[in-house]
Nucleic acid binder design. Sequence first.
DNA 1: TAGAGGATTGAT
DNA 2: TCAATCCTCTAC
Length: 194
Amino acid sequence: MKLDLSFYQHPEVTRVAKALLGKVLFTQVGGQTTSGMIVEVEAYSHIEKGCHAYGNKVTGRNKVMFLEGGHCYVYLCYGIHHLFNVVTSKAGVGDAVLIRALEPGQGLDVMMERIGATSPRRITSGPGKLTRAMGIDRGLNGTLLSGPDVWIGDGIKVGKGAILADARIGIDYAGKDAKLPWRFSIKGNEWVSK
DNA sequence: TAGAGGATTGAT
DNA sequence: TCAATCCTCTAC
């Protein structure tokens, strides 16, 4: 069951980020269907420096972030890794949630083959790896999560007490905004990134 | 048009 | 701790 696009259009990006924990991300790429439960996310809002949309600056790369909630924002980092984000809020705002880790579900053998792993352990534990495992690349940038290629479905319910909030990773350049506790994960889940 | 740097990862 | 690796943004 795909989530309704209104799910993503809530004005508080941190609330959508927490609500995404326990949901299941599906992709259908190259005729192969893969899925994984979301266990770790980070929220990014246009009001803070860690975000590509900071200062309402629209560029060729980040323009997808200013579409309405429910779009995919996929971009290349360090020339090597694709990172997968879900745009939230209304059109013109510039908020998004980065998916950092999944617990593998359907299509395990396909994901292992894409990573080149022989064991399912840690094949989706990190934002760059999960996109490779799921077959996500920039061809999906700007697509809608209600489409046939990538979507998010209902999963398990994660209670407030089971959510761990921490500082985000790899954005030291953002100054004090780097300390915002906007990384959310499912407490004790073994698939969370290290 | 050139130069710098990045929401990462895996090897040293 | 550091290199891989290339796209994006900024400054000239």
